[in-house]
Protein backbone atom coordinates (compact mmCIF):
# COMPACT_ATOMS: atom_id res chain seq x y z
CA UNK A 1 0.00 0.00 0.00
CA UNK A 2 1.64 3.20 -1.16
CA UNK A 3 1.50 6.71 0.18
CA UNK A 4 -1.30 7.58 -2.27
CA UNK A 5 -3.48 4.80 -0.92
CA UNK A 6 -2.88 5.81 2.69
CA UNK A 7 -3.68 9.44 1.87
CA UNK A 8 -6.81 8.35 0.00
CA UNK A 9 -7.93 6.20 2.93
CA UNK A 10 -7.37 9.03 5.41
CA UNK A 11 -9.20 11.58 3.23
CA UNK A 12 -12.14 9.23 2.60
CA UNK A 13 -12.38 8.54 6.32
CA UNK A 14 -12.46 12.28 7.00
CA UNK A 15 -15.05 12.86 4.24
CA UNK A 16 -17.39 10.10 5.44
CA UNK A 17 -16.99 10.61 9.19
CA UNK A 18 -17.44 14.37 9.05
CA UNK A 19 -20.36 13.87 6.64
CA UNK A 20 -21.97 11.63 9.23
CA UNK A 21 -21.19 13.95 12.15
CA UNK A 22 -23.05 16.75 10.29
CA UNK A 23 -26.29 15.08 11.30
CA UNK A 24 -25.10 14.01 14.75
CA UNK A 25 -23.71 17.23 16.18
CA UNK A 26 -25.69 19.47 18.51
CA UNK A 27 -24.83 22.82 16.96
CA UNK A 28 -25.92 23.77 13.44
CA UNK A 29 -22.87 26.01 12.98
CA UNK A 30 -20.62 23.11 13.86
CA UNK A 31 -22.63 21.03 11.37
CA UNK A 32 -21.90 23.47 8.55
CA UNK A 33 -18.18 23.45 9.35
CA UNK A 34 -18.18 19.66 9.44
CA UNK A 35 -19.82 19.68 6.02
CA UNK A 36 -17.06 22.02 4.87
CA UNK A 37 -14.49 19.55 6.18
CA UNK A 38 -16.17 16.77 4.22
CA UNK A 39 -16.12 18.91 1.06
CA UNK A 40 -12.46 19.79 1.52
CA UNK A 41 -11.55 16.12 1.90
CA UNK A 42 -13.49 15.28 -1.26
CA UNK A 43 -11.81 18.20 -3.05
CA UNK A 44 -8.39 16.83 -2.12
CA UNK A 45 -9.36 13.34 -3.32
CA UNK A 46 -10.41 14.96 -6.61
CA UNK A 47 -7.00 16.65 -6.84
CA UNK A 48 -5.41 13.23 -6.29
CA UNK A 49 -7.59 11.87 -9.11
CA UNK A 50 -5.77 14.04 -11.67
CA UNK A 51 -8.42 16.78 -11.77
CA UNK A 52 -6.62 19.64 -9.97
CA UNK A 53 -8.84 22.41 -11.30
CA UNK A 54 -12.11 20.79 -10.22
CA UNK A 55 -10.66 19.84 -6.83
CA UNK A 56 -9.31 23.27 -6.00
CA UNK A 57 -12.46 24.94 -7.34
CA UNK A 58 -14.55 22.67 -5.08
CA UNK A 59 -12.51 23.66 -2.04
CA UNK A 60 -12.76 27.39 -2.80
CA UNK A 61 -16.43 27.31 -3.68
CA UNK A 62 -17.39 25.26 -0.65
CA UNK A 63 -15.33 27.41 1.71
CA UNK A 64 -17.37 30.43 0.68
CA UNK A 65 -20.64 28.52 0.49
CA UNK A 66 -20.27 27.06 3.96
CA UNK A 67 -19.49 30.49 5.41
CA UNK A 68 -22.81 31.68 3.98
CA UNK A 69 -24.42 28.51 5.30
CA UNK A 70 -22.99 29.16 8.78
CA UNK A 71 -24.58 32.63 8.71
CA UNK A 72 -27.95 31.10 7.83
CA UNK A 73 -27.43 28.51 10.53
CA UNK A 74 -27.02 31.27 13.09
CA UNK A 75 -30.23 32.87 11.80
CA UNK A 76 -32.33 29.71 11.86
CA UNK A 77 -30.65 27.84 14.68
CA UNK A 78 -32.66 26.27 17.49
CA UNK A 79 -29.78 25.62 19.79
CA UNK A 80 -27.26 28.42 19.42
CA UNK A 81 -24.20 27.19 21.25
CA UNK A 82 -24.87 23.50 20.91
CA UNK A 83 -25.07 23.31 24.69
CA UNK A 84 -28.18 21.16 24.74
CA UNK A 85 -28.54 17.87 22.94
CA UNK A 86 -30.30 18.43 19.62
CA UNK A 87 -32.00 15.69 17.68
CA UNK A 88 -34.53 17.19 15.31
CA UNK A 89 -35.53 14.30 13.16
CA UNK A 90 -38.66 12.73 11.75
CA UNK A 91 -39.19 9.32 10.15
CA UNK A 92 -35.82 8.43 11.61
CA UNK A 93 -35.87 4.67 11.13
CA UNK A 94 -37.15 4.99 7.55
CA UNK A 95 -34.38 7.46 6.75
CA UNK A 96 -31.67 5.19 8.16
CA UNK A 97 -33.03 2.28 6.13
CA UNK A 98 -33.21 4.44 2.98
CA UNK A 99 -29.64 5.68 3.44
CA UNK A 100 -28.26 2.19 4.08
CA UNK A 101 -30.22 0.78 1.14
CA UNK A 102 -28.93 3.51 -1.17
CA UNK A 103 -25.36 2.79 -0.06
CA UNK A 104 -25.78 -0.99 -0.38
CA UNK A 105 -27.50 -0.73 -3.75
CA UNK A 106 -24.88 1.62 -5.19
CA UNK A 107 -22.05 -0.48 -3.78
CA UNK A 108 -23.54 -3.63 -5.31
CA UNK A 109 -23.88 -1.83 -8.63
CA UNK A 110 -20.24 -0.70 -8.41
CA UNK A 111 -18.92 -4.15 -7.52
CA UNK A 112 -20.91 -5.99 -10.19
CA UNK A 113 -20.19 -3.61 -13.06
CA UNK A 114 -17.10 -4.02 -15.15
CA UNK A 115 -15.93 -0.52 -15.97
CA UNK A 116 -13.57 0.09 -18.87
CA UNK A 117 -10.02 0.80 -17.70
CA UNK A 118 -8.75 3.86 -19.54
CA UNK A 119 -6.97 5.96 -16.92
CA UNK A 120 -5.86 9.52 -17.56
CA UNK A 121 -2.37 9.72 -19.00
CA UNK A 122 -0.36 11.71 -16.39
CA UNK A 123 1.15 13.79 -19.16
CA UNK A 124 -2.28 14.99 -20.37
CA UNK A 125 -2.66 18.75 -19.83
CA UNK A 126 -6.07 18.27 -18.19
CA UNK A 127 -6.62 21.88 -17.11
CA UNK A 128 -5.67 23.16 -20.56
CA UNK A 129 -8.02 20.60 -22.15
CA UNK A 130 -10.82 21.70 -19.83
CA UNK A 131 -10.31 25.34 -20.75
CA UNK A 132 -10.36 24.58 -24.48
CA UNK A 133 -13.48 22.45 -23.98
CA UNK A 134 -15.29 25.11 -21.94
CA UNK A 135 -14.68 27.91 -24.43
CA UNK A 136 -14.68 25.69 -27.50
CA UNK A 137 -16.93 22.75 -28.36
CA UNK A 138 -18.96 22.90 -25.13
CA UNK A 139 -19.30 26.64 -24.89
CA UNK A 140 -23.10 26.57 -25.20
CA UNK A 141 -23.36 24.17 -22.24
CA UNK A 142 -21.04 26.36 -20.22
CA UNK A 143 -23.01 29.46 -21.16
CA UNK A 144 -26.24 27.71 -20.20
CA UNK A 145 -24.80 27.18 -16.73
CA UNK A 146 -24.00 30.90 -16.61
CA UNK A 147 -27.53 31.89 -17.63
CA UNK A 148 -28.90 29.42 -15.08
CA UNK A 149 -26.86 31.13 -12.38
CA UNK A 150 -28.18 34.52 -13.51
CA UNK A 151 -31.74 33.18 -13.31
CA UNK A 152 -30.90 31.84 -9.86
CA UNK A 153 -29.72 35.25 -8.70
CA UNK A 154 -32.90 36.91 -9.96
CA UNK A 155 -35.06 34.16 -8.49
CA UNK A 156 -33.41 34.25 -5.10
CA UNK A 157 -33.77 38.05 -4.88
CA UNK A 158 -37.44 37.82 -5.86
CA UNK A 159 -38.11 34.99 -3.42
CA UNK A 160 -36.34 36.50 -0.47
CA UNK A 161 -37.14 40.20 -0.79
CA UNK A 162 -39.94 41.48 1.39
CA UNK A 163 -41.62 43.40 -1.37
CA UNK A 164 -41.12 44.61 -4.87
CA UNK A 165 -40.04 48.09 -5.86
CA UNK A 166 -43.62 49.37 -5.72
CA UNK A 167 -44.70 47.61 -2.55
CA UNK A 168 -46.12 44.17 -1.99
CA UNK A 169 -47.02 42.46 -5.25
CA UNK A 170 -50.47 41.59 -3.91
CA UNK A 171 -51.09 44.94 -2.23
CA UNK A 172 -54.77 45.87 -2.22
CA UNK A 173 -55.78 42.62 -3.82
CA UNK A 174 -58.16 40.30 -2.09
CA UNK A 175 -57.66 36.62 -2.91
CA UNK A 176 -60.82 34.57 -3.47
CA UNK A 177 -62.04 32.43 -0.61
CA UNK A 178 -61.52 28.71 -0.44
CA UNK A 179 -65.33 28.35 -0.25
CA UNK A 180 -67.97 30.77 -1.61
CA UNK A 181 -68.10 33.95 0.53
CA UNK A 182 -65.49 32.45 2.85
CA UNK A 183 -62.38 33.98 4.30
CA UNK A 184 -59.83 35.01 1.68
CA UNK A 185 -57.16 32.41 1.23
CA UNK A 186 -53.49 33.07 1.79
CA UNK A 187 -52.00 36.19 3.33
CA UNK A 188 -54.44 38.36 5.22
CA UNK A 189 -54.51 42.03 4.16
CA UNK A 190 -52.88 44.19 6.81
CA UNK A 191 -55.34 45.75 9.24
CA UNK A 192 -56.27 49.35 8.30
CA UNK A 193 -54.54 52.70 9.04
CA UNK A 194 -51.99 52.32 6.26
CA UNK A 195 -49.20 51.37 8.63
CA UNK A 196 -46.43 49.77 6.67
CA UNK A 197 -43.17 48.30 7.68
CA UNK A 198 -40.20 49.43 5.70
CA UNK A 199 -37.05 47.41 5.82
Amino acid sequence: MGLTDLLFLALSAVAILSGWRVFATDSMVRASFLLLLSFVAVGLIIVMLAAPYIGVATVFMMAVEMMVMALFMVMFMMNPAGLNPMMMVHQHRFSIVAGVLAFAGLTAAILFTSFPKIPVDPSTPVVHDLGIELLGPSMLIFETAGVTLLATMIGSVILSSRSGRFGMADQGSRPPGLEPDGEPAGRQPEAGNGHHHHH
Partner: peptide, 22 residues
Protein backbone atom coordinates in the same frame (compact mmCIF):
# COMPACT_ATOMS: atom_id res chain seq x y z
CA UNK B 1 -17.79 3.30 -2.77
CA UNK B 2 -16.74 6.43 -0.87
CA UNK B 3 -19.05 8.41 -3.16
CA UNK B 4 -21.86 5.92 -2.46
CA UNK B 5 -21.31 6.33 1.28
CA UNK B 6 -21.59 10.11 0.96
CA UNK B 7 -24.77 9.74 -1.10
CA UNK B 8 -26.23 7.35 1.49
CA UNK B 9 -25.46 9.70 4.40
CA UNK B 10 -26.84 12.63 2.43
CA UNK B 11 -30.05 10.75 1.66
CA UNK B 12 -30.43 9.92 5.35
CA UNK B 13 -29.95 13.59 6.25
CA UNK B 14 -32.32 14.90 3.60
CA UNK B 15 -35.06 12.48 4.64
CA UNK B 16 -34.64 12.69 8.41
CA UNK B 17 -33.91 16.31 9.28
CA UNK B 18 -36.76 18.56 10.35
CA UNK B 19 -34.96 21.85 9.95
CA UNK B 20 -34.91 23.19 6.37
CA UNK B 21 -31.27 24.20 6.55
CA UNK B 22 -30.17 20.78 7.82
Amino acid sequence: IVAAALIGIGLYGALSQQSFVM
